[in-house]
Design a protein around this nucleic acid. Structure first.
Length: 426
RNA sequence: GGAGAGGUGGCCGAGUGGUUGAAGGCGGCGGCCUCGAAAGCCGUUGUACUCCAUUGGGGUACCGCGAGUUCGAAUCUCGCCCUCUCCGCCA
């Protein structure tokens, strides 16, 4: 959430930032609601103060067994007025909050300015895409030939955009989850977390999925239940510290969590319909950090490096993109996308997204730390480390051989019972 | 799902509708004592919004959440949420 005080004092900065994002927000009417709320609140508070003074006086009179009927009469009228104003303040504040909650974060100054992904800036590449002496297949064909992926039956069970894997395919995902968590906890200093896979409205609002992106979420329909399936472990893990004041000495706090992720993919009809690139459910290991404000951008670099390390260990070629102002997500101030090379698509495709949310989520979720007298908002960051399904796709496509088998990266073999390649399932 | 108990400050724990932001204790911080420490003693100790101001001072709100009764609610009423115990069901 944008600080209302910042909005009051820096409306032009905000206007430019929102224009760069391609967001149209009526800032002037927000200022109007804010001013109206504050003046009403002020008026009400003065009447309250009067009420409190009179109340004290009445108490004193009663103790002395004196007559207080005159004061009581006067307070009756005032009480009604206070109630009116209180209701008005409540309405104005609700209106204000609603408006503030749909303002996106300020993009960092280092972002390329542009209207969409074509303006994203490539920072670096690692690895070289392999030369094939045969026509490389995509993971759907590879998986079908190996008998480890079955999209038809998945559709029978749950519909389109679901995946069903068998044998080495299923084992591959489980291996990747363990491998990712081991690297992040053993080598990168993250604490492993296993969070709830559903979360409530307050949590979803805290990280920014609600109220604006309700259509992207799967809602648990049971009567009276306030629950959504998580679209990423970012939601439950960031909300671990909602409404808390952390110790500065404990920062940065670093969590790594496996979770399945559920996305309705509303509005993406026709996009990536083939294969397991875009699913309603996929596995992911997510890294989440809570930091002090002045270290968050350095922490973003190391977080990104932690995700890159996984790709390097798996010998998968990738590139790092800085998202432009027009492509960056709602809550983020800066995002690096890691794009892995997919021979089956002859393209780099997103496999990790690493973001610094600055104080945007911390303000929404009220996550603070103390180092002086006043508590301050922390900065929150998160990044995929990595998307498991897409990593499996990358391994299948990059490791495929002319005979249809798939060579498993050496680093992963200990997690695959030591086998070197996946061969057709009988 | 059924029955019961309970939600008060960083923690524990009092609290009769009227100087209760809230007794007391613990913890934290500062000081005294000490060569140093412990013990002891003294003091201090929430958050948010807001107004005036140089340090600082004032106002309002907050006792799970929301509504109601009242001149006035931590205290009374109603609804909701959460926690615990027992039973049932279940992995």
């Amino acid at each position: 959430m944008i600080d209302i005080k910042f909005l009051r004092d820096n409306i032009d900065v905000l206007r430019t930032a929102l224009a760069n994002r391609g967001a149209s927000i009526d800032l002037d009417s927000i200022l109007e609601v804010d001013a109206s709320k504050r003046s009403t609140l002020h008026e009400m508070e003065q009447l309250r103060a009067e009420q409190n003074r009179a109340s004290e006086e009445i108490a004193k009179l009663k103790r002395e067994k004196a007559d207080a009927s005159q004061q009581l009469e006067a307070m009756k009228a005032l009480s009604g007025r206070v109630k009116e104003l209180d209701e008005k303040v409540r309405e104005l504040d609700a209106d204000l909050q609603q408006r503030l909650l749909i303002i996106p974060n300020l993009p960092d100054e280092s972002l390329p300015i542009g209207k969409d992904e074509t303006a994203n800036r490539e920072e670096r590449r690692w690895g070289t895409p392999r030369d094939f002496d045969f026509e490389p297949k995509d993971h759907v064909d590879i998986g079908a030939a190996l008998g480890i992926l079955d999209f038809e039956r998945a559709a029978k069970i749950a519909g389109a955009r679901f995946c069903l894997s068998f044998g080495a395919g299923a084992r591959l995902e489980r291996a990747l989850i363990n491998f990712f968590l081991d690297v992040h906890t053993r080598e990168h200093g993250y604490t492993e977390v296993l969070p709830p896979f559903m979360a409530n409205t307050a949590s979803f609002t805290g990280t920014g999925q609600l109220p604006k992106f309700k259509d992207d979420q799967f809602v648990i329909g049971n009567e009276g239940k306030d629950l959504y399936l998580i679209p990423t472990a970012e939601v439950p893990v960031t909300n671990i510290h909602r409404d808390e004041i952390l110790n500065e000495a404990d920062l940065p706090i670093k969590y790594a969590a496996y979770s399945p992720c559920f996305r309705s993919e509303a509005g993406s009809y026709g996009k990536d319909t083939r294969g397991m690139i875009r699913q309603h459910q996929f596995n992911k290991v997510e890294m989440v950090k809570f930091t002090t404000p002045e270290t968050s951008f350095d922490e973003l670099e190391s977080l990104t490096a932690n995700a890159e390390k996984i790709l390097q260990l798996l010998e998968l070629p990738y590139r790092v993109m800085t998202l432009s102002t027009g492509d960056i997500g709602f809550s983020a101030a800066k995002t690096y996308d890691l794009e892995v090379w997919l021979p089956g698509q002859n393209a780099y495709r997103e496999i990790s997204s690493c973001s610094n949310f600055t104080d945007f989520q911390a303000r929404r979720a009220n996550i603070r730390f103390r180092r002086g007298k006043k508590p301050e908002f922390v900065h929150t960051l998160n990044g995929s480390g990595l998307a498991v399904g897409r990593t499996a796709v990358a391994i299948l496509e990059n490791g495929q051989q002319a005979d249809g088998s798939v060579v498993i990266p050496a680093a992963l073999r200990p997690y695959m019972d030591g086998i070197e390649r996946i061969t057709p399932l009988k």
